[in-house]
Design a protein around this nucleic acid. Structure first.
Length: 283
DNA sequence: AACCAGGGTGATG
DNA sequence: CATCACCATGGT
């Protein structure tokens, strides 16, 4: 059974290909002109289709349909008013352009463990290769869906029982050691991922940084993309360049507590900008 | 061939 | 506290 969710202005492509998640793939073009994506959140599979004014969840199973719908509404952040946020951001000219250009982009509410591992693997790495490593991780250690929808994200317990040798086929390099430390500390309760929902940004950051290989940037990505703590501000090489060019004295006042949302608009806007010569001049 | 990629760690000034 | 080599791998 299919289920339509109205999300005005929302774009699957802008959201799922913005570098905040790594497990969604666009299906090859069929006779259906509308884009269809297939992916997972943690162990939950989904096929989802772009509509003019929202999305359609495709082929939902019979069990707990209300629960599934509520889950994906939250995942795609369907109940946040991004129009109001963009209006507020428009006081700053650069942010106005970025948020206009990336109008369909939303901050997902992803699975915490999946997000943690994915961004551990992201360090000193590029997005296509991160996607490849995460995919191999799921195919090798994740649970298979009965319908052949693919492989869910492996649990912390499963990964905690492995060693670096077992992870070698992933070709994650030096990050494999960090992945194991994370899986171990999550599965033995040293790091309590579920407790972070109720923590402040600072507390959550400290909790995540108990893991070897998690610094400020990775921690803030998890706080933003899994826990939806929008005051988290992941500062990567792109954002550092943008800040040096446009925001030497910090973000403008209109951003308020939503620094993470501003960050994602800026990241995506400049990353997509034409790269011939001076990347930022034309923006 | 050198440089870069949604960084972090550990060793030095 | 600031800097810096280094980490493993693949793409340009």
């Amino acid at each position: 059974m299919n289920y339509y969710i109205k999300i005005p202005g929302f774009s699957l492509e802008q959201t799922l290909e913005s570098g905040q998640c790594f497990r969604w793939r666009r299906e090859p073009p069929s006779d259906d002109p509308r884009a269809v994506y297939r992916g997972f959140s943690g162990e939950r599979p989904l096929r989802v289709r772009q509509e003019a004014d929202g999305i359609t969840l495709l082929d939902l199973g019979e069990a707990d349909r209300r629960g599934q719908i509520a889950f994906w509404r939250a995942y795609f952040d369907a109940d946040t008013d991004y129009e109001a946020i963009r209006k507020r951001f428009s006081a700053d000219e650069t942010l106005r352009r970025a948020s206009e250009e990336c109008r369909g982009l939303r901050i997902l509410r992803q699975d915490p463990f999946e997000t943690l591992i994915s961004f551990i693997l992201s360090q000193n790495n590029n997005i296509p290769r991160i996607r490849g490593i995460v995919e191999r991780l799921c195919q090798t250690f994740g649970g298979s869906d009965a319908e052949g929808a693919g492989f869910g994200f492996p649990s912390a317990e499963r990964l905690a029982g492995l060693n670096e040798e077992a992870l070698a086929p992933l070709r994650a390099g030096f990050r494999a050691r960090y992945l194991l430390d994370a899986a171990r500390k999550v599965s033995d309760g040293t790091v309590r991922l579920s407790a972070i929902f109720g923590m402040s940004c600072g507390e959550g950051r400290a909790e995540l940084k108990k893991i070897v290989g998690v610094g400020d940037k990775v921690a803030d990505c998890v706080l933003l993309f899994a826990y939806h703590k929008t005051e988290a501000f992941p500062s990567d090489v792109w954002i550092k360049r943008i800040a040096a060019e446009y925001y030497k004295d910090g973000l403008p006042e209109c951003v308020g507590g939503d620094r993470g949302i501003a960050q994602q608009y800026l990241f995506e806007y400049f990353r997509k900008a034409p790269r011939d010569g001076k990347a930022f001049r034309a923006c």
